[in-house]
Amino acid sequence: MKIDYQDHGVTASLTTTSTVFEFRKHNRVVDTALFLTSVTAVHSGFFRMKTVISGKTPIVMRAYRVVRQEMKR
């Protein structure tokens, strides 16, 4: 699973990429981040799943911390 955080000033984006073998972990991480923060997400791909979470910078930073914490579980 790969995480990429991009800061664009007022807004930011967080891209989570994983393979189909990490399907359950990918969904758990993204669902937890969406549940605990108010951001928007765009899902794409089947064999290489990609989710882009975007919103205001402080909220996406909070989502980034949640994603890192959830990945350790």
Rank of each mutant, 00 (worst) to 15 (best):
Arg68Ser: 05
Gly55Cys: 06
Lys2Pro: 00
Ile53Phe: 10
Gln69Thr: 14
Val66Asn: 03
Leu34Trp: 08
Arg24Gln: 11
Ser18Pro: 02
Thr15Gly: 01
Pro58Leu: 10
His26Arg: 02
Met1Arg: 01
Arg73Cys: 05
Met49Cys: 08
Phe35Glu: 11
Lys25Trp: 00
Ile53His: 09
Thr15His: 04
Ala41Pro: 07
Ile3Arg: 01
Phe21Thr: 04
Ala12His: 11
Thr51Ala: 14
Met71Ala: 07
Thr19Leu: 02
Tyr5Cys: 06
Val67His: 02
Phe35Ser: 14
Thr32Gly: 01
Glu22Met: 02
Thr40His: 04
Phe23Ile: 06
Gln6Trp: 06
Val39Ala: 09
Ala41Lys: 04
Thr37Ala: 09
Phe35Met: 09
Val67Ser: 04
Arg62His: 15
Glu22Gly: 05
Arg73Ile: 09
Val20Pro: 00
Thr17Asn: 00
Ile53Trp: 10
Asn27Pro: 03
Arg73Phe: 09
Lys2Ala: 00
Thr40Ser: 09
Met61His: 15
Phe21Ile: 03
Gly45Asp: 03
Ala12Trp: 14
Lys25Tyr: 01
Arg28Asp: 10
Thr11Cys: 10
Ile3Phe: 05
Ile59Lys: 08
Val29Ile: 15
Lys56Asn: 10
Ile53Ser: 05
Phe35Gln: 12
Val10Gly: 11
Lys2Gln: 03
Thr57His: 14
Arg48Asn: 00
Leu14Val: 07
Val52Thr: 13
Met1Cys: 04
Val39Cys: 15
Leu34Phe: 03
Leu14Asn: 05
Leu34Ser: 08
Leu14Cys: 07
Lys56Gln: 13
Asp4Glu: 13
Leu14Glu: 07
Lys25Ile: 10
Val52Tyr: 01
Pro58Ala: 12
Ser44Thr: 12
Ile59Thr: 15
Asp31Asn: 14
Arg62Asp: 15
Lys72Asn: 12
Arg24Val: 10
Val52His: 07
Tyr5Ser: 08
His26Phe: 15
Phe46Thr: 13
Gly9Asp: 02
Glu22Cys: 01
